[in-house]
């Protein structure tokens, strides 16, 4: 029973972080209809940047975290301005492909800059937090808290601020928003900036949970974000949270109970979930079913 409860709580803790990973993708997809599959690689790049600030420049952790978030927004803006702005109005598969290749470009830059050697970030003091018989690594708990806080902050901004209203309007319809006087391009840029800073937070949190590695971190993040997104629905912010929790719990439960029997099952599970979700509920739990009219 303890194993089960432990796995359940750990799954929820992971799920919160996965939800944050997916949120960055949702924000960009909602406004600009670009599926930013390079999100994972951007995260990896920014996690390396964090390592650079902390270990090479000897900046305090808090300050460098803030700096990385700012740089993340800049990276998001740059990606939008250089690669995606010329493609406004092009078919979605083209933008998808651009994002995919952009991810590889970002990875190659990260490798050139840092040599691709695995690094670690110590964001939080290491140790364990005990609740009754269960104990969880404090990094995990703190990451969960930060991820959830960022998630709630974004939801509040999205719902109650004027900027959020503009973003929701653009998500609904580009042309209408334009004629209502909303600068659609500015909203695109803004959503990429928000997506970039989400990538920064997610990258640093993931980097402190696992290791910062040019080969694995980006993929790890993307692979967790994809089933979360598909399950929650591509356009849905609350869907990302619900999907994140479900996927997180499923993953930890499966790795606790199945991994001893089938070695390495945990790495495979997200992909099985992707295919399963696509086959069973393709538009997710909270996604929009778009009906095409002639």
């Amino acid at each position: 029973m303890d194993t089960f409860l432990g796995a359940l709580v750990e799954g929820i803790l992971h799920g919160g972080i996965y939800a944050l990973l997916a949120l960055g993708l949702v924000v960009i997809y909602k406004s600009s209809h670009v599926f930013n599959i390079a999100h994972g690689e951007i995260m990896m790049f920014l996690a390396y940047f964090m390592v650079f600030l902390v270990s090479s420049q000897d900046l305090p952790i808090g300050l460098s975290f803030l700096l990385v978030i700012a740089v993340g927004a800049g990276v998001g803006l740059a990606c939008e301005r250089i690669f995606l702005r010329p493609l406004i109005g092009k078919p979605m598969l083209i933008t998808f492909m651009v994002a995919l290749v952009m991810g590889i470009l970002i990875r190659s830059i990260a490798i050139l800059w840092h040599g691709g050697a695995p690094q670690t970030i110590a964001l939080f003091p290491s140790g364990y937090i005990r609740v009754g018989d269960l104990s969880f690594s404090s990094t995990l708990v703190w990451s969960f808290v930060i991820a959830l806080a960022m998630f709630l902050l974004f939801m509040l901004v999205f719902r109650y601020s004027k900027v959020g209203l503009g973003m929701r309007c653009v998500a609904e319809d580009h042309q209408t928003s334009q004629s209502l006087g909303i600068d659609v391009k500015k909203v695109f840029a803004l959503s990429w900036a928000i997506g970039g800073s989400m990538a920064a937070i997610g990258g640093v949190l993931l980097g402190s949970l696992t290791i910062v590695d040019s080969d694995t971190l980006g993929l790890f993040a993307l692979v967790r974000a994809l089933p979360v997104l598909l399950l929650g629905g591509l356009e849905s912010v609350p869907g990302a949270l619900v999907g994140g929790l479900i996927i997180g719990v499923t993953e930890i439960l499966a790795s606790t109970y199945i991994d001893p029997h089938i070695h390495g099952f945990r790495e495979l599970l997200p992909f099985i979930l992707i295919v399963a979700v696509l086959m069973i509920t393709p538009h997710g739990l909270f996604g929009l079913k778009r009906i095409e009219r002639v």
Binding site: L87, I94, M97, M102, I109, L112
Partner: peptide, 27 residues
């Protein structure tokens, strides 16, 4: 000093830049 990185990153970078140019300029 960058020999090791170049080995991996050069082909990744060049291929992706070429594909991006084609996607944006001449799809």
């Amino acid at each position: 000093s960058m020999a090791l990185q170049l080995n991996v990153a050069l082909s990744l970078g060049v291929f992706s830049i070429v594909i991006l140019i084609f996607l944006i300029k001449e799809p």
